[in-house]
Nucleic acid binder design. Structure first.
Lengths: 144, 144
DNA sequence: TATATAAAGGACAAAAATATCCGAATATAT
DNA sequence: ATATATTCGGATATTTTTGTCCTTTATATA
Protein backbone atom coordinates (compact mmCIF):
# COMPACT_ATOMS: atom_id res chain seq x y z
CA UNK A 1 0.00 0.00 0.00
CA UNK A 2 2.53 2.57 1.19
CA UNK A 3 6.30 2.54 0.67
CA UNK A 4 8.53 1.70 3.61
CA UNK A 5 9.67 5.31 3.65
CA UNK A 6 6.06 6.37 4.09
CA UNK A 7 5.42 3.84 6.84
CA UNK A 8 8.48 5.11 8.72
CA UNK A 9 7.28 8.66 8.12
CA UNK A 10 3.90 8.00 9.69
CA UNK A 11 5.39 6.11 12.61
CA UNK A 12 7.96 8.85 13.21
CA UNK A 13 5.40 11.62 12.96
CA UNK A 14 3.15 9.90 15.45
CA UNK A 15 5.98 9.36 17.90
CA UNK A 16 7.06 13.00 17.60
CA UNK A 17 3.42 14.04 18.02
CA UNK A 18 3.13 12.06 21.19
CA UNK A 19 6.26 13.69 22.59
CA UNK A 20 5.13 17.13 21.46
CA UNK A 21 1.87 16.63 23.34
CA UNK A 22 4.05 16.27 26.42
CA UNK A 23 6.04 19.35 25.47
CA UNK A 24 9.12 17.32 24.62
CA UNK A 25 11.42 17.52 21.63
CA UNK A 26 13.06 14.27 20.44
CA UNK A 27 16.24 13.46 18.55
CA UNK A 28 16.80 11.19 15.60
CA UNK A 29 18.38 8.41 17.61
CA UNK A 30 15.48 8.13 20.00
CA UNK A 31 12.96 8.26 17.19
CA UNK A 32 14.64 5.48 15.22
CA UNK A 33 14.84 3.35 18.34
CA UNK A 34 11.25 3.87 19.33
CA UNK A 35 9.76 3.21 15.92
CA UNK A 36 12.27 0.48 15.09
CA UNK A 37 13.57 2.01 11.86
CA UNK A 38 17.04 2.40 10.28
CA UNK A 39 18.51 5.58 11.73
CA UNK A 40 20.19 7.18 8.71
CA UNK A 41 17.30 6.40 6.42
CA UNK A 42 14.91 7.84 8.97
CA UNK A 43 17.00 11.01 9.02
CA UNK A 44 16.36 11.52 5.31
CA UNK A 45 12.66 11.04 5.79
CA UNK A 46 12.53 13.48 8.70
CA UNK A 47 14.24 16.04 6.47
CA UNK A 48 11.52 15.59 3.89
CA UNK A 49 8.85 15.98 6.51
CA UNK A 50 10.54 19.12 7.83
CA UNK A 51 10.79 20.61 4.32
CA UNK A 52 7.07 19.96 3.98
CA UNK A 53 6.40 21.72 7.28
CA UNK A 54 4.87 18.62 8.80
CA UNK A 55 7.46 18.61 11.56
CA UNK A 56 9.88 21.27 12.83
CA UNK A 57 13.58 20.56 13.19
CA UNK A 58 15.97 22.30 15.56
CA UNK A 59 19.74 21.94 15.26
CA UNK A 60 22.34 21.92 17.95
CA UNK A 61 22.38 20.78 21.56
CA UNK A 62 18.90 20.13 22.94
CA UNK A 63 17.74 20.19 19.34
CA UNK A 64 15.63 17.56 17.67
CA UNK A 65 12.20 17.29 16.13
CA UNK A 66 8.83 18.51 17.26
CA UNK A 67 5.40 19.44 15.98
CA UNK A 68 3.72 22.74 16.69
CA UNK A 69 0.66 22.33 18.84
CA UNK A 70 -1.59 24.07 16.35
CA UNK A 71 -0.42 21.63 13.68
CA UNK A 72 -1.42 18.56 15.62
CA UNK A 73 -4.99 19.16 14.50
CA UNK A 74 -4.17 20.53 11.11
CA UNK A 75 -1.92 17.70 9.93
CA UNK A 76 -3.84 14.73 8.59
CA UNK A 77 -2.41 11.36 7.66
CA UNK A 78 -2.87 12.25 4.02
CA UNK A 79 -0.38 15.11 4.35
CA UNK A 80 2.32 12.63 5.31
CA UNK A 81 1.43 10.16 2.58
CA UNK A 82 1.42 12.85 -0.08
CA UNK A 83 4.71 14.33 1.15
CA UNK A 84 6.50 10.98 0.88
CA UNK A 85 4.67 8.82 -1.68
CA UNK A 86 2.96 11.49 -3.75
CA UNK A 87 -0.62 11.07 -4.87
CA UNK A 88 -0.23 8.21 -7.30
CA UNK A 89 -2.09 5.95 -4.90
CA UNK A 90 -5.12 8.24 -5.03
CA UNK A 91 -5.00 9.40 -8.62
CA UNK A 92 -3.13 6.73 -10.57
CA UNK A 93 -4.93 3.95 -12.43
CA UNK A 94 -5.17 0.72 -10.44
CA UNK A 95 -3.89 -1.23 -13.44
CA UNK A 96 -1.15 1.29 -14.23
CA UNK A 97 -2.68 2.72 -17.40
CA UNK A 98 -1.36 6.14 -18.27
CA UNK A 99 -4.68 7.24 -19.55
CA UNK A 100 -7.61 6.03 -17.47
CA UNK A 101 -10.62 8.13 -16.54
CA UNK A 102 -14.38 7.89 -16.49
CA UNK A 103 -14.49 8.70 -20.21
CA UNK A 104 -12.07 5.90 -21.07
CA UNK A 105 -11.93 3.65 -18.01
CA UNK A 106 -9.91 0.51 -17.37
CA UNK A 107 -11.90 -2.62 -16.53
CA UNK A 108 -11.69 -2.00 -12.79
CA UNK A 109 -11.93 1.77 -12.83
CA UNK A 110 -15.21 2.11 -10.93
CA UNK A 111 -14.51 -0.67 -8.49
CA UNK A 112 -11.18 0.87 -7.56
CA UNK A 113 -12.57 4.34 -7.44
CA UNK A 114 -14.77 3.69 -4.45
CA UNK A 115 -12.04 1.85 -2.58
CA UNK A 116 -9.63 4.70 -3.08
CA UNK A 117 -12.21 7.29 -2.15
CA UNK A 118 -12.69 5.43 1.11
CA UNK A 119 -8.95 5.41 1.68
CA UNK A 120 -8.59 9.05 0.80
CA UNK A 121 -11.48 10.03 3.03
CA UNK A 122 -10.05 8.11 5.95
CA UNK A 123 -6.60 9.64 5.51
CA UNK A 124 -8.06 13.12 5.05
CA UNK A 125 -10.11 13.02 8.21
CA UNK A 126 -7.63 11.40 10.57
CA UNK A 127 -5.47 13.95 12.35
CA UNK A 128 -2.33 13.14 14.22
CA UNK A 129 -3.38 14.55 17.59
CA UNK A 130 -6.08 11.93 17.73
CA UNK A 131 -3.63 9.10 17.00
CA UNK A 132 -0.95 10.48 19.32
CA UNK A 133 -3.49 10.67 22.11
CA UNK A 134 -4.39 7.02 21.58
CA UNK A 135 -0.69 6.23 21.81
CA UNK A 136 -0.37 8.09 25.10
CA UNK A 137 -3.36 6.26 26.53
CA UNK A 138 -1.50 3.10 25.68
CA UNK A 139 -4.04 1.00 23.84
CA UNK A 140 -2.21 1.27 20.52
CA UNK A 141 1.48 0.78 19.74
CA UNK A 142 4.29 1.77 17.39
CA UNK A 143 6.42 -1.31 17.84
CA UNK A 144 6.35 -4.80 19.17
CA UNK B 1 -1.20 -0.33 -4.46
CA UNK B 2 -0.10 -3.22 -6.65
CA UNK B 3 3.36 -3.86 -8.10
CA UNK B 4 3.88 -3.28 -11.80
CA UNK B 5 4.24 -7.01 -12.24
CA UNK B 6 0.78 -7.43 -10.73
CA UNK B 7 -0.73 -4.72 -12.91
CA UNK B 8 0.71 -6.39 -16.01
CA UNK B 9 -0.59 -9.71 -14.72
CA UNK B 10 -4.14 -8.43 -14.39
CA UNK B 11 -4.05 -6.70 -17.75
CA UNK B 12 -2.62 -9.80 -19.44
CA UNK B 13 -5.12 -12.11 -17.78
CA UNK B 14 -8.01 -9.94 -18.88
CA UNK B 15 -6.77 -9.78 -22.44
CA UNK B 16 -6.30 -13.54 -22.54
CA UNK B 17 -9.77 -13.95 -21.01
CA UNK B 18 -11.31 -11.83 -23.69
CA UNK B 19 -9.64 -13.88 -26.40
CA UNK B 20 -10.59 -17.12 -24.69
CA UNK B 21 -14.21 -16.00 -24.67
CA UNK B 22 -13.88 -15.88 -28.44
CA UNK B 23 -12.24 -19.29 -28.50
CA UNK B 24 -8.86 -17.83 -29.42
CA UNK B 25 -5.44 -18.53 -28.01
CA UNK B 26 -2.90 -15.66 -27.98
CA UNK B 27 0.88 -15.49 -28.01
CA UNK B 28 3.23 -13.47 -25.84
CA UNK B 29 4.01 -10.93 -28.53
CA UNK B 30 0.39 -10.06 -29.14
CA UNK B 31 -0.34 -9.88 -25.42
CA UNK B 32 2.54 -7.51 -24.72
CA UNK B 33 1.47 -5.31 -27.62
CA UNK B 34 -2.15 -5.18 -26.62
CA UNK B 35 -1.57 -4.44 -22.95
CA UNK B 36 1.44 -2.21 -23.65
CA UNK B 37 3.93 -4.06 -21.46
CA UNK B 38 7.60 -5.09 -21.85
CA UNK B 39 7.58 -8.40 -23.67
CA UNK B 40 10.28 -10.38 -21.86
CA UNK B 41 9.12 -9.23 -18.45
CA UNK B 42 5.58 -10.15 -19.35
CA UNK B 43 6.80 -13.62 -20.30
CA UNK B 44 8.05 -14.16 -16.76
CA UNK B 45 4.75 -13.05 -15.33
CA UNK B 46 2.77 -15.31 -17.62
CA UNK B 47 4.92 -18.20 -16.45
CA UNK B 48 3.99 -17.42 -12.87
CA UNK B 49 0.34 -17.26 -13.76
CA UNK B 50 0.57 -20.58 -15.59
CA UNK B 51 2.32 -22.23 -12.65
CA UNK B 52 -0.54 -21.00 -10.49
CA UNK B 53 -3.09 -22.47 -12.92
CA UNK B 54 -4.62 -19.10 -13.60
CA UNK B 55 -3.85 -19.40 -17.29
CA UNK B 56 -2.89 -22.36 -19.48
CA UNK B 57 0.15 -22.26 -21.71
CA UNK B 58 0.67 -24.30 -24.85
CA UNK B 59 4.04 -24.60 -26.52
CA UNK B 60 4.86 -24.94 -30.16
CA UNK B 61 3.23 -23.73 -33.37
CA UNK B 62 -0.27 -22.35 -32.82
CA UNK B 63 0.60 -22.33 -29.13
CA UNK B 64 0.13 -19.46 -26.75
CA UNK B 65 -1.94 -18.69 -23.68
CA UNK B 66 -5.58 -19.28 -22.89
CA UNK B 67 -7.97 -19.70 -20.02
CA UNK B 68 -10.31 -22.64 -19.62
CA UNK B 69 -13.92 -21.62 -19.92
CA UNK B 70 -14.87 -23.07 -16.56
CA UNK B 71 -12.11 -20.99 -14.97
CA UNK B 72 -13.43 -17.69 -16.27
CA UNK B 73 -15.97 -17.73 -13.46
CA UNK B 74 -13.78 -19.39 -10.90
CA UNK B 75 -10.81 -17.03 -11.15
CA UNK B 76 -11.26 -13.84 -9.18
CA UNK B 77 -9.02 -10.81 -9.26
CA UNK B 78 -7.71 -11.76 -5.85
CA UNK B 79 -6.23 -14.98 -7.27
CA UNK B 80 -4.04 -12.94 -9.58
CA UNK B 81 -2.99 -10.48 -6.91
CA UNK B 82 -2.10 -13.24 -4.48
CA UNK B 83 -0.18 -15.18 -7.13
CA UNK B 84 2.02 -12.19 -7.96
CA UNK B 85 2.13 -9.89 -4.93
CA UNK B 86 1.27 -12.33 -2.18
CA UNK B 87 -1.13 -11.37 0.58
CA UNK B 88 0.91 -8.71 2.34
CA UNK B 89 -1.51 -6.08 1.13
CA UNK B 90 -4.40 -7.84 2.84
CA UNK B 91 -2.69 -9.18 5.93
CA UNK B 92 0.31 -6.93 6.56
CA UNK B 93 0.18 -3.98 8.95
CA UNK B 94 -0.49 -0.68 7.21
CA UNK B 95 2.42 0.89 9.06
CA UNK B 96 4.72 -2.07 8.46
CA UNK B 97 4.81 -3.38 12.01
CA UNK B 98 5.80 -7.01 12.23
CA UNK B 99 3.44 -7.61 15.08
CA UNK B 100 0.13 -5.85 14.73
CA UNK B 101 -3.24 -7.35 15.56
CA UNK B 102 -6.41 -6.51 17.39
CA UNK B 103 -4.77 -7.46 20.69
CA UNK B 104 -1.81 -5.15 20.08
CA UNK B 105 -2.87 -2.81 17.30
CA UNK B 106 -0.97 -0.02 15.58
CA UNK B 107 -2.54 3.44 15.73
CA UNK B 108 -4.36 2.97 12.43
CA UNK B 109 -5.18 -0.71 12.75
CA UNK B 110 -8.96 -0.41 12.79
CA UNK B 111 -9.14 2.33 10.21
CA UNK B 112 -7.04 0.33 7.80
CA UNK B 113 -8.85 -2.88 8.54
CA UNK B 114 -12.11 -1.74 7.04
CA UNK B 115 -10.43 -0.28 3.97
CA UNK B 116 -8.59 -3.50 3.32
CA UNK B 117 -11.68 -5.59 3.94
CA UNK B 118 -13.42 -3.54 1.27
CA UNK B 119 -10.53 -4.11 -1.09
CA UNK B 120 -10.39 -7.81 -0.34
CA UNK B 121 -14.12 -8.19 -0.76
CA UNK B 122 -14.06 -6.40 -4.08
CA UNK B 123 -11.18 -8.50 -5.37
CA UNK B 124 -12.74 -11.70 -4.08
CA UNK B 125 -16.07 -11.14 -5.77
CA UNK B 126 -14.91 -9.85 -9.14
CA UNK B 127 -14.41 -12.64 -11.63
CA UNK B 128 -12.55 -12.28 -14.86
CA UNK B 129 -15.39 -13.34 -17.18
CA UNK B 130 -17.31 -10.29 -16.05
CA UNK B 131 -14.40 -7.96 -16.80
CA UNK B 132 -13.54 -9.67 -20.08
CA UNK B 133 -17.15 -9.29 -21.19
CA UNK B 134 -17.02 -5.58 -20.45
CA UNK B 135 -13.88 -5.41 -22.56
CA UNK B 136 -15.60 -7.16 -25.47
CA UNK B 137 -18.56 -4.80 -25.27
CA UNK B 138 -16.01 -2.02 -25.64
CA UNK B 139 -16.89 0.38 -22.86
CA UNK B 140 -13.68 -0.33 -20.92
CA UNK B 141 -10.11 -0.51 -22.17
CA UNK B 142 -6.71 -2.06 -21.52
CA UNK B 143 -4.60 0.63 -23.11
CA UNK B 144 -4.76 4.17 -24.41
C1' DT C 1 11.24 -37.33 -39.29
C1' DA C 2 12.71 -32.55 -39.98
C1' DT C 3 11.54 -27.98 -39.37
C1' DA C 4 9.57 -24.13 -37.59
C1' DT C 5 7.18 -22.01 -33.84
C1' DA C 6 6.23 -20.79 -29.34
C1' DA C 7 6.78 -21.01 -24.28
C1' DA C 8 10.24 -22.12 -20.33
C1' DG C 9 14.09 -21.05 -17.85
C1' DG C 10 18.65 -19.35 -16.60
C1' DA C 11 21.88 -15.61 -16.58
C1' DC C 12 22.46 -11.03 -16.77
C1' DA C 13 21.45 -5.70 -16.75
C1' DA C 14 19.23 -1.46 -15.40
C1' DA C 15 16.51 1.23 -12.47
C1' DA C 16 14.39 2.31 -8.23
C1' DA C 17 13.95 1.86 -3.36
C1' DT C 18 16.16 1.25 0.77
C1' DA C 19 20.02 2.04 3.63
C1' DT C 20 24.74 3.78 5.27
C1' DC C 21 28.65 6.96 5.98
C1' DC C 22 30.82 11.13 6.76
C1' DG C 23 31.92 15.96 6.63
C1' DA C 24 29.51 20.57 6.86
C1' DA C 25 26.50 23.68 8.98
C1' DT C 26 24.33 25.39 13.04
C1' DA C 27 22.79 26.22 17.53
C1' DT C 28 23.43 25.67 22.58
C1' DA C 29 25.69 25.86 26.78
C1' DT C 30 29.64 26.54 29.29
C1' DA D 1 34.98 32.22 22.23
C1' DT D 2 35.03 27.37 22.43
C1' DA D 3 33.51 22.79 22.76
C1' DT D 4 29.70 19.91 21.93
C1' DA D 5 25.40 18.19 20.33
C1' DT D 6 22.50 17.83 16.70
C1' DT D 7 20.41 18.20 12.07
C1' DC D 8 21.64 18.74 6.96
C1' DG D 9 23.31 17.24 2.68
C1' DG D 10 26.19 14.83 -0.57
C1' DA D 11 28.25 10.55 -1.94
C1' DT D 12 28.01 5.86 -1.91
C1' DA D 13 26.40 1.01 -1.03
C1' DT D 14 22.94 -2.64 -0.92
C1' DT D 15 18.69 -4.79 -2.03
C1' DT D 16 14.58 -5.29 -4.57
C1' DT D 17 12.01 -4.66 -8.58
C1' DT D 18 11.82 -4.25 -13.24
C1' DG D 19 13.52 -5.46 -17.54
C1' DT D 20 16.50 -8.00 -21.32
C1' DC D 21 18.87 -11.73 -23.81
C1' DC D 22 19.83 -16.19 -25.15
C1' DT D 23 19.54 -21.17 -24.95
C1' DT D 24 16.59 -25.16 -24.11
C1' DT D 25 12.36 -27.71 -24.42
C1' DA D 26 7.97 -29.03 -26.27
C1' DT D 27 4.91 -29.66 -30.08
C1' DA D 28 2.25 -28.99 -34.34
C1' DT D 29 2.54 -29.72 -39.02
C1' DA D 30 4.60 -30.39 -43.43
Amino acid sequence: MFSKACQYAIRATLFISQKSLQGERVGLKKIAEEIDSPEAFTAKILQQLARNSIIESVKGPSGGFEILDKNLDKIKLISIVEAIDGNQIFDGCGLGLKQCNSAKPCPVHDKFKSIRENLKHMLSTTNIRELATDLSIGNVFLKA
